[in-house]
Nucleic acid binder design. Sequence first.
RNA 1: GCCCGAGUGGUGGAAUGGCAGACACGGCGGACUCAAAAUCCGCUGCUCGAAAGGGCGUGUGGGUUCGACUCCCACCUCGGGCACCA
Length: 845
Amino acid sequence: MTESAPEPNPDTNAEIPVHRYNAALAGAIEAKWQDRWDAERTFYAPNPVGLLTGVNAERATLPKRYVLDMFPYPSGSGLHVGHPLGFIGTDVYARFSRMSGFNVLHTMGFDAFGLPAEQYAVQTGQHPRVTTEANIATYRRQLRTLGLGHDPRRGVATTDVAYYRWTQWIFLQIFNSWYDAEADKARPIADLEAELDSGARTPDDGSTWAELTEGERRDYLDTHRLAYIADAPVNWCPALGTVLANEEVTADGRSERGNHPVYKRPLKQWMLRITAYAERLIADLDLVDWTDSIKLMQRNWIGRSVGAEVRFPVVKHDGLDIVVFTTRPDTLFGATYMVLAPEHPLVDTIVANSWAGSPAAWRGVFGADVSPPEAVARYREYAAKKSELERQSEGREKTGVFIGAYALNPTTDERIPIFIADYVLMGYGTGAIMAVPGQDERDWEFAEVFGLPIIRTVQPPDGFDGKAYVGDGPAINSGPLDGLNIVDAKRKMIEGLERGGWGRGTVNYKLRDWLFSRQRYWGEPFPIVYDADDRPRAVPDSLLPVELPEIVDFAPHITDDPDALPEPPLSRAEDWVFVELDLGDGPRTYRRETNTMPQWAGSCWYYLRYLDPTNEDAMIDPRVEQYWATGVRDGAPAAGVVDLYVGGVEHAVLHLLYARFWHKVLYDLGHVSTVEPFQRLYNQGYVLAAAYVDERGVYVEASEVEERDGAFTYRGEPVTRENGKMGKSLKNSVTPDDICSEYGADTLRLYEMFMGPLDASRSWNTSDIIGVHRYLQRLWRNVVDEETGAVHVSDAPADDDTRRLLHRTIAAVRTDMTALRFNTAIARLTELNNGLTTVVARDGN
RNA sequence: GCCCGAGUGGUGGAAUGGCAGACACGGCGGACUCAAAAUCCGCUGCUCGAAAGGGCGUGUGGGUUCGACUCCCACCUCGGGCACCA
């Protein structure tokens, strides 16, 4: 056995043995190996073709394994020990995979567009790119110290022009596509145009293609694209100066970032047609290995409900119907009134001019002394002004107003009154409901307030003393449905509705299309220009990238005025906004789109660019994509290209839903060969740490708090201890740099993996680190003489007990590693080392 | 309100139907040291007992089982998600 001399300990403290494993020696060992990995390009993962082929080429014939972290936003404060928890976990798994004979792709990029760099730029005038690049350099240095085995060639940042060029290209793929419902996939918009031109397809709005003007045809195509401009109610946040996606607004109507008030108002914005994929986004969850809780969160967010659409004819308006969506068509006989959302477009058409003897109670507080149209106007004003927060604080007290109009219940031919009320939302279903107070708690409450009739259509069980009964039971008061349970009654009702032309079975989703434009500087510009008719035109691929223009004032137009219009910073770059281009019909002047893409855009596909980061001719070379897409699951081809994806649970809906959507579009268009991006998803827990509050309730710097006899003080003042997520806001961050210099990176890595299962949140406790440090020290001492540096390794066969222990450890560690149970793997290794320590103490080596 | 998940020593945690508390921190005792730190060795769930030994013990109450931290039912507490979604 050849043995090289161990590193001498650079620590000059004469008190300790020269070859003791401590922070100084660990640092020397780690630096030596990190340099060697760089020099030998150890972690370069070879591609089958292209620029990333030469180094380690022999590994390209091995089966592949793709181990991915959710890439970080490079913030100005650098890493704390909570950030690398997942990075270390994937690194351990990647190294284990590499040693198990896989060609492992493992790297780290940066999600570098976003608000903090822009806000810092607004404050200091420094360009966000400068800040961003400095922060990335800090992150790279910190990550290198941790000894992570990344392929450095693949770690792209979303702000790289060479990267966002392809983000823009993907946007154009989406823009240039439509969703073919029959084929159930996205197809090029050119196909739609060709089919309309040839007559193979007719417009779905009832128009005749041949009779449309050129402009009307453009409009038709534009409204069918997967990326389209809509003048729809959006979430407008004046304090941030931008609009936000539904997913970025909290339940109480505030911005997730900054907690500012958000207002619903109609604005022209870019939308992505994610709703076309709702069914596939639910169905394909069966193909991936994610935790049930994450799958459930996505299913709930998409919110599929099965029911029926039913037409209610409006009295005195021949041929005019109100269409409602209901999940309970079986209760139709009990529909005693209807409710429209206040902003429902039919309201203005059907509102009556007089109350015509209807009960005064129906007028609520808004129509007490005025005409129905005036009552509608007043109620609308009341509902629009009420913020989401106020709706919350007022509880669920039902308000609304009768609009003087009636509809006919198609099953009973009864005349039923039509109300508007804000408990019906325009954004869900058809914005109109049939109200069945007997079987719906909200409808019951409303009926009580307005004195409306209640008819039970399901027999409640004996002893039921509640109001609305939502459970199962035999149908009553429902003519031919009587006696049937809910499931059978629904089926029979839908059959009847479809036969009579009164409705049909349908499926509805909570998911809305994705609001995709932001009024910000530090984001990807859209590769879109507007022509003289104000219609959007794609910038051709040959003119990509559309680079961010240099401007001086990065600030969004921030205001307290909810009526102010958003004003993108890019609109100030007038030289850039107006551009002369030849889009095939001669040179003309166009106006550029001045919105930018949301931060989610770059994170929707970075895992794909990692595959072929230097390719200038394509997003990915298809042969490279094919190689990395060859995963296996239960013996069959895996659905996802990434074998293991580790990150925080906070991305359960936003990022993971958006990325799946983009991936499916790219799949439909033939650019990727898997239907899903991420085969196995694992959510690492948070690192928690003690945080301290003073008597004013303000957090104080945790590292300066002193403990005496169980009481805590900060600069002499008493403080109380809490436990919370490590971070800047709780002032309880611990940096990896400090831990590395005190114990070494291997001790830090070992501690973070030993604290508990990877998916559980764990409390950081600096005093516990010594345990794993001692383990490394004992391990070292079993191999290296602390005094002389002599390596005592023996070729002599171990005794039976030792061999048994060794092989038991190997088996257990292998199982634990595969299941990402690193804490127990380390415990097994500690037991092995404790066993060896006994042998060494007995036999001398 | 609805839907998930979790409750085990002083602490982090282990055990997924078969010896509860692996591994580690902390604590106690010892070795080394003038002394302390570091390092090493031993003990350490609670409780009765001088000891041998006994009793109790995985949030609470019930159940299934030869056997339950583990499976089932109800409840309590904590954490997360959704929230007038028809």
